[in-house]
Design a protein around this nucleic acid. Sequence first.
DNA 1: TTTT
DNA 2: TTTT
Lengths: 149, 149, 149, 149
Amino acid sequence: MNGTTNKVLLIGNLGDDLKLHHFDEQNCIGRFPIATTESYISRTGERITETEWHNIVTRNKLAELCDRYLKKGDKVFVEGRIKTRKWDDNGQTRYTTEIVANSIEFLTPKVENEHRQNTQSDQNKTNQSQNTTVVDPPFLAEGEDDLPF
Amino acid sequence: MNGTTNKVLLIGNLGDDLKLHHFDEQNCIGRFPIATTESYISRTGERITETEWHNIVTRNKLAELCDRYLKKGDKVFVEGRIKTRKWDDNGQTRYTTEIVANSIEFLTPKVENEHRQNTQSDQNKTNQSQNTTVVDPPFLAEGEDDLPF
Amino acid sequence: MNGTTNKVLLIGNLGDDLKLHHFDEQNCIGRFPIATTESYISRTGERITETEWHNIVTRNKLAELCDRYLKKGDKVFVEGRIKTRKWDDNGQTRYTTEIVANSIEFLTPKVENEHRQNTQSDQNKTNQSQNTTVVDPPFLAEGEDDLPF
Amino acid sequence: MNGTTNKVLLIGNLGDDLKLHHFDEQNCIGRFPIATTESYISRTGERITETEWHNIVTRNKLAELCDRYLKKGDKVFVEGRIKTRKWDDNGQTRYTTEIVANSIEFLTPKVENEHRQNTQSDQNKTNQSQNTTVVDPPFLAEGEDDLPF
DNA sequence: TTTT
DNA sequence: TTTT
């Protein structure tokens, strides 16, 4: 547009299940945190591990797919952009930085029959894994339209 | 290390000159803001332009190079990682998100003799551009050691 | 989709003008080479500079924009994917690797009135630069529809 | 360095085991292919799946780590740069494009005791998976020095 | 030649 | 709050 770019690429694990908020039949927003960790040897010779937390924001179809297929602990690849939001904290302006996802790849191999059905209740979200056939999760970039919901 | 990645790629313009802070002879930290802008057509048909500000943090040789060659308005390509810092605001914990740069490319073509000398005062930082030969700016990734300072 | 990603990010200079090929009124393809250079100090202490050439492929509106606004020597940021094409060389199968662009940012500042008009002939493609007001070049990602041609 | 960048980010699966070539005690090179797949709905309404093959090149410690921990079918995240090599094909100059890896993340969860030992023969490279404790593979960027070999 |  |  104007010779600028704002691009973020993260591979990390969900620290919690996605929270989905529906505005109406068509529009929803989903949020979940992911952790990335960095490890290095300090000047004094000890191994330091630093964890960074990222707030992922996703919308509409992509949000619904994530809600259906992702759960706490899963690994994802997120491609998106940095967005800092203003909010009012009792009269004080605060800022929160989020990652608005353009696409999300599901990197944790899924065990068949483990996928949540639309009609299942949330308690099925925990990992039961009675069966062992590993299958690929689907994927949907924002704006695509070819998945059945 | 652990199957995670935290990578940011930004192309934007400096909203202000770099602020350099020296800890000692060897170690310093530089900070500057860059803006990225996104433009799109809204549902109601108007063009929306959104500007995002990013706080860039750079250290040591790379910070000194940026201090010497970059000024407000210049365009850069920053490759780095997201880091959210905690700080104490009168007893309240606040968070600030920064981009820690691994490498910075200078994208604004330089006009010869315009480069600041170490001995020049800051008022020379404004763009005078009497001469017109375009030269390549130098570049240094963190950890490299082959530039003469 | 399937837990894979193929992403390329290049900043480089056009080694030649774009070649545009129209299939019909709607569809066209544009190609141009860009160079990236890497510089490092070898084990024997000399500075080595290596240039890499990348064949950029772009389609339809984005190709037309590039054809109109880019020329040899200009700097661009290309975001795309790697694609290796098979072709027949007198009965032998050969392979050519190209970068299929999703988006292209124009990083060379433009001087006003320098932009080529549709009705201008190609000899106007050389840089005349009589005027000096720097303006922002436009940008269009593949699939966008809001620019006037 | 000069305002250019050559960056590739791939997530894909190994189509074959790594081939390691030792030049001497210190220096070696490893090569392996990875596949990325793209899927989309064509104009005629059918789902098209396209596979792209990438030749990954890695050196020294990173190559040895990959040789030890990766095998055909595993998923990796590769960050590197595009490099096109010339070679002589009976007097004709041919070109091969490779991805020179700067860092590789191992994304396939490992089952404990499955890791190959230095003293194991290659036939142990096939996936036996008698045990079930999932452990993280190590990771080493080129130039790091903190792993025990 | 991979993966789903 | 994740993951190894």
